[in-house]
Computed example of a mutant assay.
Amino acid sequence: MSDDITDDLEDVLAHETIAVVGCSSTPGKAAHDVPKYLLDHGYDVIPVNPFADEIFGRDVYDALSDVEEEIDVVCIFRPSEEVSEIVDSALERDDVDAIWTQQGIRDDDAAARAEDDGRTVVQSRCMMVEHRRRSA
């Protein structure tokens, strides 16, 4: 991550298409409410969850590698120990500019690999909170 996290946050939040790995179909869970907020605020949210068929009236992909649309940002709602594998999947795609792990989720080694590959990384921050801060 660059020294100026504010610039990184602004850059990532300026993107439009967000694949949410671990998106939940259960209202009340952060993995549901945060992507719903993003969807309601103009982002194109692509749910990724192998245990759901539809979330927010949208088809759900089993894995990041299955997503056919272009992805700008991969937002991760999975435990920290799963981040490495998700980051590797993101790095296999040429379209992913940024990787964002939600509050409490981080993997510094995976983040370093992504940054070394030219991707922006934001760890352990909530996209909804950061968006609200900048929209107030």
Score class of each variant (00 low, 15 high):
1 M>S: 06
1 M>F: 01
2 S>T: 14
2 S>D: 09
3 D>H: 13
4 D>W: 02
4 D>P: 05
5 I>D: 01
5 I>R: 09
5 I>M: 11
7 D>S: 15
8 D>F: 04
10 E>W: 08
10 E>N: 15
10 E>I: 15
11 D>V: 05
11 D>Y: 14
11 D>H: 15
14 A>R: 15
15 H>P: 00
17 T>L: 05
19 A>M: 14
21 V>L: 03
22 G>Q: 09
23 C>T: 14
23 C>I: 14
25 S>D: 14
25 S>I: 11
26 T>Y: 06
27 P>M: 07
28 G>R: 14
29 K>L: 14
29 K>F: 10
30 A>H: 10
31 A>T: 08
31 A>Y: 02
31 A>V: 12
31 A>F: 05
32 H>P: 06
33 D>C: 08
33 D>A: 09
34 V>H: 01
34 V>L: 01
35 P>K: 15
35 P>M: 08
37 Y>I: 13
37 Y>E: 11
37 Y>A: 10
37 Y>T: 13
38 L>Y: 07
39 L>V: 10
39 L>E: 11
40 D>Q: 14
41 H>F: 04
42 G>A: 02
42 G>P: 03
42 G>C: 05
43 Y>D: 12
45 V>W: 10
46 I>E: 02
48 V>F: 00
51 F>A: 11
52 A>K: 06
53 D>P: 03
54 E>Q: 12
54 E>T: 13
56 F>S: 06
56 F>W: 07
56 F>R: 09
59 D>E: 12
60 V>R: 05
61 Y>N: 03
61 Y>C: 02
62 D>Q: 14
64 L>C: 02
66 D>H: 08
67 V>G: 06
68 E>F: 01
68 E>Q: 10
68 E>A: 07
69 E>A: 15
70 E>D: 14
71 I>H: 02
73 V>T: 15
73 V>F: 03
76 I>K: 06
77 F>S: 13
77 F>Q: 11
77 F>H: 13
77 F>G: 09
77 F>C: 09
78 R>A: 06
78 R>Q: 15
80 S>Y: 11
85 E>W: 00
85 E>L: 01
86 I>M: 09
86 I>K: 02
87 V>R: 09
87 V>S: 00
88 D>W: 00
89 S>L: 07
90 A>K: 03
91 L>E: 06
93 R>G: 05
94 D>C: 06
94 D>R: 00
95 D>N: 07
95 D>Y: 00
95 D>A: 10
95 D>G: 08
96 V>A: 07
96 V>D: 03
96 V>R: 05
98 A>N: 09
99 I>A: 07
100 W>E: 05
100 W>D: 12
101 T>Q: 04
101 T>I: 09
102 Q>G: 08
104 G>Q: 01
105 I>G: 08
107 D>Y: 04
107 D>G: 04
108 D>L: 10
108 D>G: 04
109 D>Y: 06
109 D>N: 08
109 D>I: 03
110 A>T: 01
112 A>M: 04
113 R>K: 11
114 A>P: 04
115 E>T: 14
115 E>H: 07
115 E>M: 05
116 D>W: 02
116 D>M: 02
117 D>I: 08
118 G>Q: 11
119 R>L: 00
119 R>Y: 00
121 V>L: 07
123 Q>D: 05
123 Q>W: 04
124 S>A: 12
124 S>W: 00
127 M>C: 05
128 M>Y: 04
128 M>C: 04
129 V>F: 11
131 H>D: 05
131 H>Q: 00
131 H>L: 03
132 R>K: 13
133 R>Q: 09
133 R>D: 12
135 S>C: 03
